[in-house]
Design a protein around this nucleic acid. Sequence first.
DNA 1: AATGAATGAGGTTTCATTCAT
DNA 2: AATGAATGAAACCTCATTCAT
Lengths: 203, 203, 203, 203
Amino acid sequence: MRAKRTRAQQTDERRLAIVAAALDAFVESGFEATKISDVAARAGVAKGTVYLHFADKEALFEAIVRDALSPVVQGIGAISTDGVASVRSLFEAFALPLMLDIVESRRGDVLRLLISEGRRFPRLAEFYHAEILTPAKAHIQRLLCKAVENGELRNPGLAEYPLLVAAPMLMSVIWAGLFQRLDPIDFEALFRTHLDTLFMPGA
Amino acid sequence: MRAKRTRAQQTDERRLAIVAAALDAFVESGFEATKISDVAARAGVAKGTVYLHFADKEALFEAIVRDALSPVVQGIGAISTDGVASVRSLFEAFALPLMLDIVESRRGDVLRLLISEGRRFPRLAEFYHAEILTPAKAHIQRLLCKAVENGELRNPGLAEYPLLVAAPMLMSVIWAGLFQRLDPIDFEALFRTHLDTLFMPGA
Amino acid sequence: MRAKRTRAQQTDERRLAIVAAALDAFVESGFEATKISDVAARAGVAKGTVYLHFADKEALFEAIVRDALSPVVQGIGAISTDGVASVRSLFEAFALPLMLDIVESRRGDVLRLLISEGRRFPRLAEFYHAEILTPAKAHIQRLLCKAVENGELRNPGLAEYPLLVAAPMLMSVIWAGLFQRLDPIDFEALFRTHLDTLFMPGA
Amino acid sequence: MRAKRTRAQQTDERRLAIVAAALDAFVESGFEATKISDVAARAGVAKGTVYLHFADKEALFEAIVRDALSPVVQGIGAISTDGVASVRSLFEAFALPLMLDIVESRRGDVLRLLISEGRRFPRLAEFYHAEILTPAKAHIQRLLCKAVENGELRNPGLAEYPLLVAAPMLMSVIWAGLFQRLDPIDFEALFRTHLDTLFMPGA
DNA sequence: AATGAATGAGGTTTCATTCAT
DNA sequence: AATGAATGAAACCTCATTCAT
């Protein structure tokens, strides 16, 4: 039995519980409609404890979203494009599972949250733009250039607009949040069709 | 007939003023953060007057959004696809200006509002899905089928996924709301590149 | 029966009730220890009503104190020194009752409140200094100069320090608040002895 | 004996640090507005440590004020009036520097604190009355009686009201706290004029 | 003895909603 | 039909106090 944890460990666990609870609550209800008392209850701590870790509701919100996004930031930096023969197969191997994960997981929830609240948290929008969108755009662009070199792309002009490549993913995230229960979409098939549109057939 | 309006006309005008004010307010601040007193002030009426026309804040919100979307509903029903020779030219003639309008106008604001609050107003999401998305999807699909017939589409499989055609518009609306000030995009060029990707060259 | 009051009259009455209740509460407990809910309960209104009339607790406090002091401001301006034969008899006729009133009435409470909270409400201290202390000092000084002319003053140098004439009043106000119940003082006799000290005997 | 202090000494030092910090804090902000965490931070100890030495905030407050006043209690008991030739010169030699010190030092701060909070801490008011005011009054009275014997006093009736002699000091303390920055007074000159008023000229 | 994380009662303030005029 | 003063529930946040370490 080593159930005994140190004081510091308990504190850390509590902080993590608050972060997790807050993410759930914000995702479920949005910023304004989320009550700190609800976050505390979900985390199994008293209201005041939330304020030991975060100065106020806004700070909690920003910290939560940043925390949830930072693994994405890391992930983007880690992708390499060296020695890639077929860009399409790279997309199928990496981008497709990534997209399916984002659409259905907590990461998609955070993205939806960011889309919903970004207007009122410009700092978060800036963070997301600087740390995620811009690197991701650059990365996609590198891949598209390589695809152009390989003659894989149907429309070489796409290399100028990497966002067009990512648009279906964004749409899927939103669809998943709002309409999937009404009108389910097969996101994998959708994404494969997207790839068929971008790349030469039989590549 | 002089400037004197009938009682009924005055009432209608007031209702319209409230609707317009509420749309502005909700678009600007979202549902929770919008105060009825602010709506009333913008509309130039007293707080109580808002409650003569709408049962409560939620009813006001839903009515506003429905109202704002209904012209779109009408518009979609009115489009005809008879005797169209080039689907691409149809997109360029109609869809491009429509998209630019949506991205930059009040309609885009409403769409962003719907994306933000849709989770907490499932009835609105259902309305939007039934009255706008589904007809719009059907319409695009008809056009894509015609394009397939004409041999215009690079990837005939697209006809099964009309949402892929609309994805860049959705992305543009979101970009316009969150990132345009940080990193401006030329939406027209983006959309033209999208068309170049969908359609055969030299069509 | 004209018990029927107009809406505006009722509102005014409510405001007055709040002002009176707040004065009582602040005098009794000081600024920090006074609860808005207590003020509201004393005034017989809901908590929110207090905020219809005053922006926040500080605004309420300042308004209350200013209101309570303004009749004093008026009173000081109205005193005349023309054609006064004996300054001492003037003091006996006017200053003595004034002092006794201040020591024992609501006005004394306000003065004690100001002394207690003045540090944290510098604007109030400035107001009091500008609108009450300075005119009062000037007035006393005019009287003392006349007394010097008349040869009534034992120490003509007093005319330079009118505050010395007022000091016993201030002391009495503080004594009344803190020690009168422990050790009662006859304020009238005290003040007469003060006059005996200031003025030549048999004047 | 080296720099190493015993456990008991350390504890005493800590207690003194808390007392000093608390006095500063209470003087600066008053009872309600002073936070225990602030006291602890100023004293360089943890919040809990304050509670090892004082049962609660009220006990801390009362202890602080009593501690701060006790040297005054001692001082008053130590003054002797034996073999004094001129009471006025005694006042000039002792009371004048004492007053200037009180007005400008920490002792004046404590007096202001007592005036501000005395209503809500009746035990402190009683302590101050019993241990300081009453002995001080008695002492002044003895001096005044001697002055009457010497024929120094302009108004022998003053001997019945020793508070009148002290009133300018109280006024000066309050003035120093509230108005000195707006309208500076020369407290020494004020006090000399006071003595000139009390005592026969050329004494 | 000392710490400081945790608590939760309690305070201020906001605002959707009502209703007498 | 229109008003806007009044309400009071409910949210945020603070801080005196406790207690496990």
